[in-house]
Design a protein around this nucleic acid. Structure first.
Lengths: 200, 200
DNA sequence: CTCTTGTCGAACACCGGTGTACGAGTTACT
DNA sequence: AGTAACTCGTACACCGGTGTTCGACAAGAG
């Protein structure tokens, strides 16, 4: 209750600013290159390498903090999306406003995978993942999404296609503006109940 | 003429055997960990680290050779697959006998990406990629695959879903035997022409 | 203003990977 | 058998990243 921001009993405004900058830079660097060194991150943050070690005991903790920040930022941004109504349209909305975010976190996730214990990552992803799973489940209940494949698989396909789109953009074979449409068209078709079962 | 096997004027049988073992181990190690060191590979091959440098000037050249071998092995294995008949069934056959192979090469590809010039990778992948593209094109011409999305995108989706399946297996959320079925069911739905256009 | 806190740069030891050199021992061609 | 090719272990120099220490200095909080 005492401190709205953090649990630390006392932290100078100067330090807060540095930590902010470091975390910000860490997310940026690690999203570009999962093997980014502490020196790189420090330079990108506009601080000395030693300063980084002053706030984070080691590289692993820094990566953890960066991932945590990226996840909660994304989570907050997605809260605005309306997930009610036709699940298909809701899915399209969700894709439209989140696919880029998810694909950017991909490299950062790889960075985390090299350093963090396995359980930690799944722990941080529990929140956002649940949101999508609920939407898919609802679509299945309403009969607009297929039930012959597990929900977890469908969610996985969603991730894969988004990441694939990011790769295509990186490779210059796809433009940013077309991506969302392609992803939506692909996933809606993949999620739809198979024709054979619809007729029966 | 002089040597039926290789262009090298003279290569002892002993050396050939070593090179074989090294390449084999390199594919195995790099597929498991893209950052595998030369020492690791040498150990896995049952030879000394120095021997490796005796045959490959540096790590990059070794990775290149490993990738080349993996690609041509995969290419050869896929030659047996019958790609005639209904494109949908042909696609299912291709998936069934290749998805595992493709997903394994994924990490190796990452290894190559860190070391090799960008053009080189696309060059090595030209052969196999063309095979799939032809099949997809034929399916589009015959009206069983959708044409509202580019061929390159469809091929990309195929890759993404396969890789996603591999990840799911690694994470223990999917079993090997179910994977091929899931992939096929997903891709056939994603590739099918959208319902609205089918009626026309 | 004073004093605590934070920042910075340089320097250090440590580790692990790369690529090279040497010398002795082994293996295959002819 | 004799010779060239190959292998192996050790050792070395080099590089880059990590985490720590030190001392000087700036900036915020009281």
């Amino acid at each position: 209750m005492a401190a709205t921001r953090e649990k630390t009993p006392a932290k100078r405004a100067d330090a807060q600013r540095s930590i902010e900058a470091i975390l910000d830079a860490a997310v940026r660097c690690l999203s570009r290159n999962p093997d980014a060194s502490v020196s790189e991150i420090a330079k990108a943050a506009g601080v000395g390498r030693v300063t980084v070690y002053g706030h984070f005991p080691n590289r692993a903790d820094l990566v953890d903090a960066a991932l945590r920040r990226a996840v909660e930022e994304g989570h907050a941004g997605l809260d605005a999306v309306d997930l009610d109504g036709d699940p298909r349209e809701a899915l399209a909305r969700l894709i439209d406003s989140s696919w880029q975010l998810v694909s950017q976190s991909r490299l950062l996730l790889i960075a985390a995978q090299d350093v963090l214990p396995p359980g930690r990552i799944r722990e941080l992803h529990a929140g956002p993942a649940e949101r999508i799973e609920r939407l898919v489940e609802r679509g299945r209940d309403e009969g607009v999404f297929r039930v012959d494949l597990p929900t977890s698989w469908l969610v996985g396909v969603m991730h894969s296609v988004m990441h694939g789109a990011a790769d295509e953009i990186n490779a210059g074979r796809l433009t940013q503006d077309k991506a969302a449409g392609y992803i939506g068209a692909t996933l809606l078709a993949a999620f739809a109940p198979p024709a054979e079962l619809a007729g029966k």
